[in-house]
Protein backbone atom coordinates (compact mmCIF):
# COMPACT_ATOMS: atom_id res chain seq x y z
CA UNK A 1 0.00 0.00 0.00
CA UNK A 2 2.91 2.27 0.82
CA UNK A 3 4.08 1.80 -2.78
CA UNK A 4 0.73 2.98 -4.09
CA UNK A 5 1.03 6.12 -2.04
CA UNK A 6 4.61 6.73 -3.20
CA UNK A 7 3.59 6.10 -6.81
CA UNK A 8 0.65 8.45 -6.51
CA UNK A 9 2.83 11.15 -4.96
CA UNK A 10 5.34 10.70 -7.73
CA UNK A 11 2.61 10.94 -10.33
CA UNK A 12 1.30 14.15 -8.82
CA UNK A 13 4.74 15.65 -8.65
CA UNK A 14 5.72 14.66 -12.16
CA UNK A 15 4.13 17.61 -13.97
CA UNK A 16 6.01 20.08 -11.79
CA UNK A 17 9.31 18.65 -11.91
CA UNK A 18 13.28 16.43 -14.59
CA UNK A 19 17.99 12.16 -14.08
CA UNK A 20 21.00 10.74 -14.78
CA UNK A 21 20.65 11.22 -18.52
CA UNK A 22 18.52 14.30 -18.14
CA UNK A 23 19.05 17.45 -20.03
CA UNK A 24 22.13 19.26 -18.70
CA UNK A 25 21.63 23.00 -18.72
CA UNK A 26 23.78 26.08 -18.51
CA UNK A 27 21.49 28.28 -16.43
CA UNK A 28 23.61 31.38 -17.12
CA UNK A 29 23.13 30.99 -20.86
CA UNK A 30 19.44 30.15 -20.86
CA UNK A 31 17.65 33.21 -22.15
CA UNK A 32 14.02 33.97 -21.50
CA UNK A 33 13.27 33.75 -25.22
CA UNK A 34 14.78 30.23 -25.39
CA UNK A 35 11.49 28.48 -24.92
CA UNK A 36 12.38 25.26 -26.68
CA UNK A 37 15.41 23.11 -26.00
CA UNK A 38 16.16 19.92 -27.86
CA UNK A 39 19.05 17.72 -26.93
CA UNK A 40 20.86 14.61 -28.07
CA UNK A 41 23.37 12.63 -26.07
CA UNK A 42 25.51 9.54 -26.00
CA UNK A 43 27.10 7.93 -23.00
CA UNK A 44 27.41 5.09 -20.52
CA UNK A 45 24.62 4.47 -18.08
CA UNK A 46 23.91 0.81 -17.30
CA UNK A 47 25.31 0.17 -20.80
CA UNK A 48 26.20 2.25 -23.85
CA UNK A 49 23.16 4.48 -24.38
CA UNK A 50 21.86 7.00 -26.87
CA UNK A 51 19.21 9.54 -26.05
CA UNK A 52 17.16 12.45 -27.31
CA UNK A 53 14.91 14.87 -25.50
CA UNK A 54 12.85 18.00 -25.58
CA UNK A 55 12.56 20.71 -22.95
CA UNK A 56 10.21 23.65 -22.58
CA UNK A 57 11.16 26.65 -20.49
CA UNK A 58 8.13 27.61 -18.43
CA UNK A 59 7.35 31.14 -17.44
CA UNK A 60 6.54 30.75 -13.74
CA UNK A 61 7.64 34.20 -12.64
CA UNK A 62 9.14 32.56 -9.56
CA UNK A 63 11.97 30.18 -10.53
CA UNK A 64 13.43 29.40 -13.94
CA UNK A 65 11.95 26.01 -14.75
CA UNK A 66 12.35 23.60 -17.66
CA UNK A 67 9.89 20.79 -18.19
CA UNK A 68 11.36 17.96 -20.22
CA UNK A 69 10.72 14.59 -21.74
CA UNK A 70 13.41 12.17 -22.80
CA UNK A 71 13.92 8.87 -24.48
CA UNK A 72 17.04 6.73 -24.39
CA UNK A 73 17.98 3.23 -25.46
CA UNK A 74 21.10 1.09 -25.12
CA UNK A 75 23.10 -0.20 -28.07
CA UNK A 76 22.91 -3.84 -29.09
CA UNK A 77 21.48 -6.18 -31.67
CA UNK A 78 17.91 -5.49 -30.60
CA UNK A 79 17.37 -1.75 -30.39
CA UNK A 80 13.73 -1.92 -29.38
CA UNK A 81 13.87 -4.37 -26.49
CA UNK A 82 15.30 -1.92 -23.95
CA UNK A 83 14.37 1.70 -23.37
CA UNK A 84 13.99 4.40 -20.80
CA UNK A 85 11.70 7.41 -20.95
CA UNK A 86 11.48 10.22 -18.47
CA UNK A 87 9.25 13.15 -17.89
CA UNK A 88 9.89 15.82 -15.35
CA UNK A 89 11.10 19.25 -14.40
CA UNK A 90 14.38 20.94 -13.61
CA UNK A 91 14.09 24.03 -11.39
CA UNK A 92 16.79 26.53 -10.58
CA UNK A 93 16.03 27.14 -6.92
CA UNK A 94 18.91 29.29 -5.66
CA UNK A 95 21.17 31.86 -7.28
CA UNK A 96 24.06 33.61 -5.54
CA UNK A 97 26.46 35.54 -7.76
CA UNK A 98 27.67 32.89 -10.28
CA UNK A 99 26.54 29.97 -8.16
CA UNK A 100 23.31 28.17 -8.90
CA UNK A 101 21.54 25.33 -7.18
CA UNK A 102 18.93 23.40 -9.12
CA UNK A 103 16.81 20.35 -8.47
CA UNK A 104 15.52 17.74 -10.87
CA UNK A 105 12.62 15.41 -10.35
CA UNK A 106 11.58 12.91 -12.99
CA UNK A 107 9.14 10.11 -13.36
CA UNK A 108 10.75 7.19 -15.15
CA UNK A 109 9.40 4.36 -17.25
CA UNK A 110 11.83 1.68 -18.42
CA UNK A 111 11.73 -1.60 -20.27
CA UNK A 112 14.31 -4.35 -20.50
CA UNK A 113 14.08 -7.69 -22.28
CA UNK A 114 16.47 -10.62 -22.45
CA UNK A 115 16.06 -14.25 -23.47
CA UNK A 116 14.85 -14.93 -19.93
CA UNK A 117 12.59 -12.08 -18.86
CA UNK A 118 10.83 -8.88 -19.85
CA UNK A 119 10.92 -6.18 -17.19
CA UNK A 120 8.79 -3.05 -17.02
CA UNK A 121 9.32 -0.48 -14.34
CA UNK A 122 7.95 2.79 -13.07
CA UNK A 123 10.40 4.76 -11.02
CA UNK A 124 11.65 8.16 -10.03
CA UNK A 125 14.86 10.10 -10.25
CA UNK A 126 15.69 12.98 -7.93
CA UNK A 127 18.87 14.99 -7.98
CA UNK A 128 20.44 18.23 -6.82
CA UNK A 129 23.04 20.16 -8.82
CA UNK A 130 25.28 22.88 -7.43
CA UNK A 131 27.79 24.75 -9.55
CA UNK A 132 29.29 27.84 -11.11
CA UNK A 133 27.46 29.05 -14.19
CA UNK A 134 28.86 31.65 -16.60
CA UNK A 135 27.39 32.66 -19.97
CA UNK A 136 30.08 30.72 -21.88
CA UNK A 137 30.75 27.80 -19.51
CA UNK A 138 29.65 26.00 -16.38
CA UNK A 139 30.97 23.44 -13.90
CA UNK A 140 28.79 21.70 -11.34
CA UNK A 141 28.53 18.73 -9.02
CA UNK A 142 25.44 16.52 -8.79
CA UNK A 143 24.03 13.96 -6.41
CA UNK A 144 20.91 11.93 -7.04
CA UNK A 145 18.85 8.83 -6.41
CA UNK A 146 17.29 6.65 -9.12
CA UNK A 147 14.61 4.41 -7.68
CA UNK A 148 12.74 1.50 -9.26
CA UNK A 149 9.42 1.85 -7.48
CA UNK A 150 7.31 -0.89 -8.98
CA UNK A 151 8.33 -3.49 -11.58
CA UNK A 152 6.54 -6.02 -13.72
CA UNK A 153 8.21 -9.36 -14.48
CA UNK A 154 7.18 -11.60 -17.37
CA UNK A 155 9.41 -14.61 -17.81
CA UNK A 156 10.16 -16.45 -21.03
CA UNK A 157 9.63 -20.12 -21.74
CA UNK A 158 13.39 -20.58 -21.28
CA UNK A 159 13.27 -19.24 -17.74
CA UNK A 160 10.12 -21.21 -16.96
CA UNK A 161 12.06 -24.32 -17.91
CA UNK A 162 14.53 -23.46 -15.13
CA UNK A 163 11.85 -22.49 -12.66
CA UNK A 164 8.31 -23.54 -13.68
CA UNK A 165 6.74 -21.96 -10.57
CA UNK A 166 8.20 -18.50 -11.20
CA UNK A 167 5.64 -15.83 -10.33
CA UNK A 168 5.04 -13.23 -13.02
CA UNK A 169 3.39 -9.90 -12.31
CA UNK A 170 3.94 -6.62 -10.51
CA UNK A 171 6.46 -6.59 -7.69
CA UNK A 172 6.43 -4.06 -4.92
CA UNK A 173 7.59 -2.49 -2.68
CA UNK A 174 10.50 -0.94 -4.50
CA UNK A 175 12.60 -3.46 -6.41
CA UNK A 176 15.78 -1.42 -6.56
CA UNK A 177 17.54 1.89 -6.29
CA UNK A 178 20.92 3.41 -7.01
CA UNK A 179 22.57 6.60 -5.81
CA UNK A 180 24.83 8.53 -8.13
CA UNK A 181 27.22 11.42 -7.82
CA UNK A 182 29.50 13.19 -10.24
CA UNK A 183 30.41 16.35 -12.07
CA UNK A 184 29.09 18.06 -15.15
CA UNK A 185 30.66 20.72 -17.29
CA UNK A 186 30.11 22.37 -20.62
CA UNK A 187 30.48 25.40 -22.77
CA UNK A 188 27.94 27.47 -24.63
CA UNK A 189 28.15 29.09 -28.04
CA UNK A 190 25.20 31.20 -29.12
CA UNK A 191 22.17 28.95 -28.84
CA UNK A 192 24.08 25.72 -28.28
CA UNK A 193 25.46 24.01 -25.21
CA UNK A 194 27.93 21.15 -25.43
CA UNK A 195 28.10 19.28 -22.16
CA UNK A 196 30.01 16.44 -20.56
CA UNK A 197 29.14 14.70 -17.34
CA UNK A 198 30.40 11.72 -15.44
CA UNK A 199 30.37 10.07 -12.05
CA UNK A 200 29.91 6.95 -9.99
CA UNK A 201 26.95 4.90 -8.86
CA UNK A 202 26.27 2.71 -5.84
CA UNK A 203 23.25 0.75 -4.71
CA UNK A 204 20.86 1.88 -2.03
CA UNK A 205 22.48 -0.49 0.54
CA UNK A 206 25.62 1.71 0.29
CA UNK A 207 27.72 -1.51 -0.19
CA UNK A 208 26.99 -3.05 -3.55
CA UNK A 209 27.54 -1.46 -6.95
CA UNK A 210 26.01 -1.91 -10.38
CA UNK A 211 28.08 -3.96 -12.84
CA UNK A 212 28.93 -0.68 -14.55
CA UNK A 213 29.48 1.46 -11.46
CA UNK A 214 30.00 4.67 -13.37
CA UNK A 215 28.22 6.87 -15.84
CA UNK A 216 29.34 9.34 -18.45
CA UNK A 217 27.60 11.41 -21.04
CA UNK A 218 28.44 13.73 -23.92
CA UNK A 219 25.62 15.78 -25.32
CA UNK A 220 24.45 18.88 -27.07
CA UNK A 221 21.52 21.25 -26.46
CA UNK A 222 19.98 23.42 -29.15
CA UNK A 223 17.87 26.31 -27.82
CA UNK A 224 15.40 28.37 -29.85
Amino acid sequence: MKTYIKSILLSLLTPFVSTLDAQTLNWANLQEENRHIIHAQFGMEYGAVFGIGYGYQMNTGLFPMVASMEYSFPSGKNLLDDLKSKIGVQIRLVQYRHFRFSAKLQGVFRRHETGLVRLLNFGSDFSGILGIYRPKWFFAGEFGFDKAIVSHFKHSKAYRDQHPQVVDGWYEPATGGNFYYGVQTGFSIKNQDIFLKGGKMFAQDFKTKPLLPFYGQLGVNLKF
Binding site: G76, T114, N178
Partner: peptide, 21 residues
Protein backbone atom coordinates in the same frame (compact mmCIF):
# COMPACT_ATOMS: atom_id res chain seq x y z
CA UNK B 1 32.00 -5.60 -26.76
CA UNK B 2 30.87 -2.19 -25.53
CA UNK B 3 28.11 -2.08 -28.14
CA UNK B 4 26.88 -5.65 -27.78
CA UNK B 5 23.50 -6.91 -26.70
CA UNK B 6 25.31 -9.16 -24.21
CA UNK B 7 26.72 -6.15 -22.39
CA UNK B 8 23.44 -4.35 -22.01
CA UNK B 9 21.63 -7.60 -21.16
CA UNK B 10 24.11 -7.91 -18.30
CA UNK B 11 24.21 -4.32 -17.12
CA UNK B 12 20.80 -2.80 -17.83
CA UNK B 13 19.10 -4.95 -15.17
CA UNK B 14 20.88 -3.06 -12.38
CA UNK B 15 18.42 -0.20 -12.62
CA UNK B 16 15.43 -2.50 -12.13
CA UNK B 17 16.62 -4.80 -9.36
CA UNK B 18 19.14 -4.28 -6.59
CA UNK B 19 19.75 -6.55 -3.62
CA UNK B 20 21.58 -6.19 -0.34
CA UNK B 21 24.35 -8.61 0.72
Amino acid sequence: NLWSESLNDATYTDQFVTGRE
